[in-house]
Design a protein around this nucleic acid. Structure first.
Length: 420
RNA sequence: GUGGUCGUAGCUCAAUGGCAGAGCUCCAGGUUGUGGUCCUGGAUGUUGCGGGUUCGAGUCCCGUCGAUCACCCCA
C-alpha cells in the first residue's frame, strides 16, 4: 500500500459504515444530554498555544502531546487537545449573558500527539458536559447521573460498568492534618494514582519527603471517608442510580486542577482504559481569567475510542448499535419500461418531497436487477412504473403483496407508508 | 521516548526455502416484466518498501516505513 493511500498514524478514515457507527454514538450523546437539559456549544479546533500553557503546569503531559505550530502570521497555535480551556475562555468572556447554573455539552474532535495503542488515537471524538456556576453536591450528582444515563443509553447495565467516585477535598484534608505542604500533597496524590501499578518500595521512596508511607495511603483509602460522599450518594440514590456508583478514594486523577469530587468510569472487567473521567474544578475559570471571573464548575469527558471497544465487547450494546444502523430505505422505484423514466423520476421526486427515503436505478437495468437492488437497500416498498401507465404497481417487499393503482392515487398511499 | 509482535487481493486469512491460493466482497450471466437462497463465470497482487544470503525468498538476514500491544499518560 502506497504511503499516500493511507491515513496518518492515529487518524481514521470514516467509510459509510464507520460514519454510521459514529453517528449512533453522537446521536446517543446528544439525545441524553438534551433530556438532561444541557445545551450544545462548540469552539474552534485551533487555539492559541498559550491557552493550554496557562492552564497546565510546565512540563505537563498534555503540553508535550500538543499539535502546535506557528501559523502564517507567526502566531503560536495548537490543535485542541481537550475542551475545558476553550469552555473556560468562552464562559469567562460572556459569563454575564447566561443564567446560572449553565449546563453545556459538546461533541468535538481532539488531537494529541502520542503513540497510538488500544483505546488511544491521535484524533478522537469526545463528549464533554459541564455545569458551571453551581457548587453544591446536587450539581455533582446531576453530572454523574448524566454520565450513568449516557452509558445506559448505549445499552450498558450495572454489570458492565461502574463509576468510581472519589474526592480530592477529602484527600487534602487528610494530608493537611498530617502536615503536608502543597508540594507534598502533589507528591502523595501522584503516588496514590499509582498504588495499583507500582511496587510499594518504589512508592515509599518517593513518599519519603512527605513523612507518609504507602500503608498510610492505603489505610486512608480503606477508611473510605464516608462523610465526603454522603450528599452526592444520597442524590444519586434518590434517582435509583446507587448501583452504578462505588466510592473509591484511590481515584485521584492525573490533572492538577481538580478541587473536589472526581470520578472515572470503568468497564467491570477492567480490561479497558477509563471510559470517562471528570471532576470539580472550582478554581480553573478564575485562574484563566486572572481572577476576573470566579465560577465553580464540574464536568467530565467521554471519548469514542474506548467506548467503541466496549460496545463491541458487550452484546446488549452491540445489538443497540446494530438496530440503529439498520436504517432501511422506504421506497425503491423500479423502471420496468425505460420509456417511462420521466414519469418514474416524477414519482421519485414526489416520494422524496414527502420525506421518504427513495432510490432508483440511474441506468437502464433488468427488472430482476432492480428488485435485487431494492432488496439490498432494505427498501420497504417498490413502485413499479411500466407499460400499464397511468397505473403503477405498489409492492410491499416483505409480504410480496402487490396492487395496481393509478399513479395519481399513489400519494395518499405513500403517506400511509410513512406511518408503516 | 523504551520494548515485544506482525505486514500476502478491497476485507479475513492460507502457502515445509520450490508454480501466490481460499472464503467473503465486487462485476457479469442463469430465455420477453418481479427480489433475499442457489448455480456458473470473471476481475483484483511489484507478497509494505530497499538491500543481502541462495540454483531458487512471501518464507532466512539487515535496514526502513507502517500497523499493533505493553510501559508512560489518559478519553
Amino acid at each position: 500500500m502506497c504511503a499516500l493511500m493511507q491515513a496518518l498514524p492515529g487518524f481514521r478514515d470514516f467509510y459509510p459504515e464507520d460514519c454510521a457507527r459514529r453517528n449512533h454514538v453522537i446521536e446517543t450523546w446528544r439525545s441524553v444530554s438534551r433530556r438532561y437539559g444541557f445545551l450544545e456549544f462548540d469552539g474552534p479546533v485551533l487555539e492559541s498555544t498559550d491557552l493550554y500553557r496557562k492552564k497546565n503546569e510546565e512540563g505537563a503531559e498534555i503540553l508535550e502531546q500538543l499539535y502546535s505550530f506557528a501559523d502564517r502570521g507567526g502566531r503560536e497555535v495548537a490543535l485542541r487537545p481537550e475542551m475545558t480551556p476553550t469552555l473556560a475562555r468562552m464562559v469567562a468572556a460572556r459569563e454575564k449573558h447566561y443564567r446560572k447554573p449553565m449546563k453545556w455539552f459538546c461533541v468535538s474532535n481532539f488531537f494529541r500527539h502520542e503513540r497510538q495503542q488500544k483505546g488511544r488515537l491521535r484524533e478522537f471524538l469526545q463528549f464533554n458536559a459541564d455545569i458551571i456556576g453551581e457548587s453544591s453536591p446536587q450539581a455533582d450528582a446531576e453530572i454523574i447521573a448524566l454520565a450513568v444515563d449516557l452509558m445506559r443509553a448505549f445499552g450498558f447495565t450495572a454489570e458492565h460498568f461502574v463509576v468510581r467516585l472519589s474526592d480530592r477535598k477529602a484527600w487534602m484534608e487528610f494530608l493537611q492534618s498530617r502536615g503536608c505542604d502543597e508540594a507534598a500533597c502533589r507528591t502523595v496524590l501522584a503516588c496514590a494514582d499509582k498504588l495499583e501499578r507500582e511496587p510499594a518500595e518504589k512508592l515509599n521512596a518517593k513518599l519519603a519527603p512527605t513523612g507518609l508511607v504507602v500503608d498510610d495511603l492505603k489505610a486512608f483509602i480503606a477508611a473510605g471517608s464516608p462523610g465526603a460522599f454522603a450528599p452526592v450518594l444520597e442524590a444519586l440514590a434518590a434517582r435509583g442510580l446507587s448501583g452504578f456508583v462505588q466510592p473509591d478514594l484511590s481515584i485521584v486523577r492525573g490533572l492538577a486542577y481538580y478541587t473536589g469530587v472526581v470520578f472515572e468510569i470503568f468497564d467491570r472487567s477492567k480490561s479497558l482504559r477509563a471510559l470517562a473521567g471528570g471532576g470539580r474544578y472550582d478554581g480553573l475559570i478564575k485562574g484563566l481569567s486572572d481572577g476576573a471571573i470566579d465560577l465553580p464548575a464540574i464536568g467530565f469527558g467521554m471519548g469514542d475510542v474506548v467506548l467503541g471497544h466496549l460496545i463491541n465487547e458487550t452484546p446488549s450494546a452491540s445489538e443497540k448499535l446494530k438496530a440503529a444502523l439498520a436504517q432501511t430505505s422506504d421506497v425503491y422505484v423500479i423502471i420496468a419500461d425505460e420509456s417511462r423514466r420521466a414519469e418514474a423520476l416524477q414519482i421519485v421526486q414526489t416520494c422524496r418531497e414527502l420525506g421518504l427515503s427513495t432510490d432508483f436505478s440511474l441506468r437502464p437495468a433488468k427488472i430482476g436487477k432492480q428488485f435485487q437492488e431494492a432488496e439490498h437497500l432494505g427498501a420497504c416498498h417498490a413502485v413499479l412504473v411500466g407499460q400499464e401507465w397511468p397505473q403503477v404497481k405498489l409492492k410491499h417487499l416483505a409480504t410480496r403483496s402487490e396492487e395496481a393503482i393509478d399513479h395519481a392515487a399513489l400519494v395518499p398511499n405513500l403517506k400511509n407508508i410513512k406511518l408503516r
